[in-house]
Design a protein around this nucleic acid. Structure first.
Lengths: 205, 205
DNA sequence: GCGTCATGTGAATCTAAAATCACATCGGAG
DNA sequence: CTCCGATGTGATTTTAGATTCACATGACGC
């Protein structure tokens, strides 16, 4: 056995990513220390050198998701300046994010979020609220610039935006990838864009 | 012990309902035959008189959900005849349904749907598609009657409608009931209604 | 070069819950 | 009333996986 010893900081990251990865195809129930260990080249017991237990591994996964979500909005802010354009980009990135991290909706709805560690549940809530707040902020800026109808509730708009993805993710999951989320997201976005834009003309190609 | 013997048809229903109920507060992983048994007044082994195993119990839960969803649309069709009104009622009923059956979104996204029994997964997909098809049908009728813009894709509209609920359900779950889903659904519905209605006037109260 | 501490290992322990089985009892058919 | 199949029970077996522990070994400071 070519034993390779790595620093615990590196291992923690490897393990969190491996776990998130495995959760994409397996499911929290079946996420085993053994499986995670295999993925990073460790024996089950090896994980315990870096995490106190499965619970802590899950915490790390949640943090990883939080980081990636935050990065999404941050990148979009740099890529574009028009509010409508930004919202569209958030949507596109979010779709990609969900596709690349299939586990995310499942974790959010998971058993763990009901009966598991309440601290983790609160943390997830906090992460999502933070994400929504970021999107709401974009909406608010759009309202100030006149691109978005001022009378709308930014929170409702931001939830509607992310709400486009969730039902798509359901069908995508259940159909084992058959359902075309991107396509659906584009169509739903057209509908949403019209209804939030200040100029009221409706385009039908 | 006052042993009460009941017909297997009754027991199957009791058990499915008990399981769906327990899933609301526990989580699939922790749904134990023991727990279900206790709920209906049976010892763990007793369940096996009526179901081959946990897997079959879950199948029964899925069927129960399917029945209730189908009933929703059916009732709405009787209550109202205007398409917009019908859509609104579907939404309201759906919100109530999700609140009374907290387990539903979790089951749809559950581990079981990823790695579990593929037949059950297919069945859930079928149930949801059926539900969406019913809603799409209402949309199509609204388009024929002129109440809903004809150029819209009915499927997108029906997904948007149900998509209002899902993000709300996320926050509702994570906030342990703090988040007001009904209120959010109403606001989001106002936005959606405007964007699908044929008359283009926008009301801001 | 060498000591020591972090990191890694394999075996063993512990636990929860599903599933099975032999036996008990209810309730309707006759 | 009495028998029999359907239903219920408690004890037991099995399994999967988390966790623990005593021991091994690599890497880094000196």
């Amino acid at each position: 056995m070519a034993i390779e010893k790595l620093d615990t900081a590196i291992r923690r990251e490897q393990i969190a990513e491996a776990a998130l990865d495995l959760l994409g195809t397996r499911g929290i129930k079946e996420l085993s220390m053994a499986g995670v260990g295999r993925q990073v080249g460790l024996v089950p017991a090896g994980i315990y050198r870096h995490f106190a237990g499965k619970d802590e591994v899950l915490d790390a996964v949640v943090e990883l998701i939080g980081q990636r979500l935050a990065a999404n909005v941050h990148l979009v802010r740099e890529e574009a300046h028009d509010a409508i354009d930004r919202l569209h980009r958030v949507l596109v990135r979010h779709v990609r994010f969900i596709q690349e991290n299939r586990a995310v909706p499942r974790i959010i709805f998971s058993d763990e979020m009901v009966s598991g560690n309440p601290k983790r549940k609160a943390r997830v809530y906090q992460i999502i609220r933070g994400y929504l707040a970021q999107v709401s902020q974009i909406v608010r800026e759009g309202q100030r610039s006149g691109a978005i109808r001022a009378e709308l509730n930014p929170k409702v708009v931001s939830m509607a935006l992310l709400g486009i993805v969730l039902p798509g993710a359901v069908l995508w999951n259940l159909s084992s990838g058959q359902f075309d989320v991107s396509d659906h997201a584009e169509q739903a976005w057209n509908l949403l864009r019209e209804s939030i834009s200040s100029d009221t003309k409706r385009n039908s190609p």
